[in-house]
Amino acid sequence: MLRSVRETAPAGLVPLAWAFAAAAHTGLLAARAVLIGHVVMATLLFAFAALSWSEMREHPVLRAWLAVIVLGFVVTLVGAYSLVVESGTLAAVTVFGWMALPTLAFLYTGYVLPDEERSWAYMAGAGLSGVAAIGFAAGASPLVTLALAGVGQTLGIVVAVVTY
Rank of each mutant, 00 (worst) to 15 (best):
T145Y: 06
L128F: 13
T145A: 03
E117W: 13
T76L: 05
V14R: 05
G139H: 11
T94L: 08
A17W: 05
A42V: 06
H59V: 06
V5F: 14
E58Y: 01
L146I: 01
V131N: 12
P60Q: 08
V161E: 08
M41N: 12
A33S: 15
G88D: 04
A160L: 12
A105P: 09
V85H: 08
V161K: 11
G156F: 03
T154I: 05
V158M: 06
A19Q: 02
G37H: 07
Y164S: 11
A124C: 03
G156W: 11
T94Q: 14
T89C: 02
W65P: 07
L90N: 12
A149H: 09
A137C: 03
L45H: 08
A105Q: 01
S4L: 12
M123H: 14
R3M: 13
D115T: 08
V61E: 08
T103K: 10
A92W: 07
L13T: 05
L66H: 05
A149V: 05
V40E: 01
G88P: 07
V40D: 04
S4R: 14
V162Y: 03
S4E: 09
E116T: 11
A92E: 08
L44S: 05
V162P: 00
W120A: 11
W65Y: 05
V34H: 13
S52T: 14
A42M: 06
V162C: 04
V84C: 09
A49E: 12
M123V: 14
A11Q: 09
V158E: 01
D115G: 03
T43L: 14
W120T: 13
